[in-house]
Structures are given as C-alpha cells and as structure tokens.
C-alpha cells in the first residue's frame, strides 16, 4: 500500500491535480477561517475597489464587486458549492451510470437493448439545454442542479462501463468462473467489478470537473442558488457586466474555476495511468 502511494506521488499529474483539488477542498472546509470578510457583507463606500495588497483591516486582496463585497471571500465561500456539486453529483452519477452499465454489459439481451437505447436517446439531447429545462422544471436551487447533472450525465458512465464489461465478459477467467460453478452475482462482484473500478474512479474525477462547470453554467444563467449567495458561476455572470470597470472580478472567478477543473482532469489522467494493474 505504501509502495502504491509512493508510485502515485511520482506521477506529476497526480501530484499537481491532487494539489489543486486538495486546495479547493481545504478552502471549502475552512471557509469561515480563511475568508477575511463575510461574503455577504456589503461595503457601499468601496464599490468595485481594485485589488490591493497592503495589510490592514480594510484591505481587499482581490478587490470588491459592485456591491462592495470582498471578492476573495466570495471565491473561498463559493468553493463550498463547487465542492458539494463535484462530490455529490459526481458520486451519484457514477453509481447510477456504473450500475446500469454493468447490468447492460453483463447480462446483455433485453436489459442491454433497453439501457442502450435509453442512452442513445439521452445523448441526442443537447446537455446544457436539457439541464436548463430540468432546473426550470424542478425549480432553482442546489438540489435541482445536482439532480439535473445526475440525470444528464449518467450516460457517460453507462457507455464506458458497458463497453468495458462486455470486454471483461469475453475473458477466459469469466468462463473459468462459470465453469467453476460461480453464480452470476459472485462473478459480477468478484471478477468483473474489480476490473471496472479503476475506470470508474477515473471517470468520477473527470465527472467532478464537469459537474463544477455545469453548476457554474447554471449559476451564470441564474438557475442555481440565489444570486446573493457566493458561487463562481454567479460571480462570472456579475463580472461580465462590469468587465471594463473591474476586470479582476471576471478573471479571478474564471481562473479559480479553470484551476479546479484542470485539477480534477489532471488527477483523473494521472490515476488512469497508475491504476491499471497491467500498464503500471
């Protein structure tokens, strides 16, 4: 185990991606400690103040927005929403898509036909449009955003896991297990699933990045949480309006979003190379 850990740490993608993800996680966990201001506190005497780096009670390291709220504090608090969406939507999507993909790939026949057609139909909708329609129907709010992501993105897992399960099912060790008299459930759990897990984990990190972007998109169009509460998408939307007067607003939020998604993707790429027992 320790050896596996050391090997992971030799992969720069895992290290850099992991560090970025860890930084966002820590920001989310420690937001009340890290943030210099209350993210909702308005200071109408300091609207659109530019970033300044002097030390003092009234310093805004990354400037303020049009209501005089501290940008750094809002970015830190906004990471809570990003992390919640990444983890909850990512895990739920992974569970649903992997379960259906395993069923379709392993049992084939009618189950496969049904699930695969469903995936085909699902994938023919433009995802962002579908998300907007779903959230409009479910009502705004974080829970609707998560539901929308799960409902739309399970196909991503389902397809890949189904293909991998089909490949696994043709391997001789599955035949050997059948010949040995193991039942389908035992084969699915012990022989197929361990070979699917690394793949599912990689997809999960990629999905976490996608979920963060989708939440930002929905915030941008005002369909996520209320516009008061700090979210990166909301800050991008607000910054867009004042990009000539206060470019730091837009750029800071975008950079943070970029770094987070990059972190998840690098981590996923690195894990993919390291987790395959045959490749490593």
């Amino acid at each position: 185990m320790a050896e596996a850990g050391r090997r992971l740490l030799r992969n720069w993608r895992v290290v850099l991606g992991g560090a970025l993800v860890l930084a966002v996680l820590l920001a989310a966990l420690l937001a009340p400690v890290l943030a210099p201001y209350d993210p909702l506190d308005q200071d109408l005497s300091a609207q659109l103040a530019p970033p300044d780096w002097h030390f003092g009670a009234d310093a805004h390291a990354l400037g303020t927005d049009s209501l005089g709220r501290d940008v750094l504090s809002r970015l830190i608090w906004g990471s809570r929403i990003a992390v919640t969406v990444a983890v909850v939507a990512g895990v739920l999507t992974a569970l649903l898509g992997t379960a259906l993909g395993l069923l379709a790939g392993f049992f084939g026949g009618r189950a496969d036909a049904l699930i695969s057609r469903l995936v085909d139909i699902w994938s023919s909708f433009p995802p962002v449009l579908l998300a907007i329609i779903l959230v409009a129907l479910l009502g705004t709010g974080l829970r609707s955003v998560i539901v929308a992501i799960v409902v739309i993105d399970w196909t991503r897992f389902c397809r890949v896991v189904r293909a991998e399960t089909l490949k696994q099912r043709r391997m001789d060790y599955i035949d050997a297990a059948v010949a040995a008299g193991l039942g389908p459930r035992a084969i699915l759990w012990r022989e197929v699933l361990p070979n699917i897990l690394p793949l599912a984990l990689v997809l999960l990190t990629l999905e976490a990045g996608i979920a963060v972007v989708v939440e930002a998109i929905l915030s941008f169009v005002g369909l996520s949480i209320s516009s008061d509460a700090p979210s990166w998408g909301g800050m991008i939307a607000e910054g867009r309006g004042v990009v000539h007067e206060a470019p730091w607003l837009l750029s800071c939020a975008m950079l943070v979003l970029l770094a987070t998604v990059l972190g998840f993707n690098l981590l996923g790429d690195g894990l993919k190379a390291e987790l395959d027992p045959v490749l490593r």
Partner: peptide, 16 residues
C-alpha cells in the same frame, strides 16, 4: 469439472 485453459494470461483476472 474443471478447466485448464489455453491462454494462461487471460484466464487469470488481472486485478486480483
């Protein structure tokens, strides 16, 4: 019954 398969690599699960 038991099987001794042709290809000893693909007859063992690579991740276990």
């Amino acid at each position: 019954l038991a099987l001794i398969p042709q290809d000893p690599l693909s007859a063992l699960n690579p991740s276990r």
